[in-house]
Amino acid sequence: MFEARLVQGSLLKKILEATKDLLTEATFDCSSTGMSLQAMDSSHVSLVSLMLRSDGFDAYRCDRNLSMGINLTSMTKIIKCSSNDDVVTIKADDNNPDTVTFMFESPNQEKVSDFEMKLMDLDTEHLGIPETDYSVVVKMPAQEFQRVCRDMSQIGESVTICCTKDGIRFSASGDLGTGNIKIAQSANVDKEEEAVVIEMQEAVTLTFALRYLNFFTRATSLSGQVSLSMSPEVPLVVEYKIADMGYMRYYLAPKIED
């Protein structure tokens, strides 16, 4: 028996929005620790890693480990049938292993819906992600990062991110010319969410495909802040924390000079 109840049901809408450009199907792994998902996009350039810890749910029961192969397009259709203030419960029954049920309850309990969705048999490839001490970790407002990625993609297909202790510089070039955006580390901020904080061991310069960074910024509604972890010649980690529950992380391989 698996049952996970989320009072803040709209969180699932945000999570699906945050994966829609990268994944069409994925396996949700459920265990006593929580629900997780790890999947690469079809071109093997990026990886999505979601963690929702069991203690972040309003009720959680998972008697035995369960892997649910889910068509995310179908799940999105079903989750769209919920209202933003609905309580969502995800249920899977051991006697009926080919389906998952989503139950939506209005806050006053006057409307209760349930949708049963067919599960898929997916060949899941799991990647082992090594523990890495990153040379640079930048925390910045998620909306600012979204804006930078959007603006840079007006100029070119790639962005070069150069991070020093003074700040982070995003540069792009293309047929129309070049663009640079430099964001300094915050001197002092009243609100933690508005801060730009740089933790640095050594300066790093890396180039990434803007197409993917823009896909990652679909997660902006999940968190006020985003963190970018970088080391020379290894994939970038873009992390959006999901308050009291876990995270949505994206890994993107850097571009290299041919």
């Binding site: 690469m40 391989a253 000079e257 041919d258």
Partner: peptide, 14 residues
């Protein structure tokens, strides 16, 4: 022009 790396070159399948 820079070339896109494959993620699997960094993270092995487990």
């Amino acid at each position: 022009t820079p070339v896109q790396n494959d993620l699997q070159e960094f993270f092995a399948l487990v």
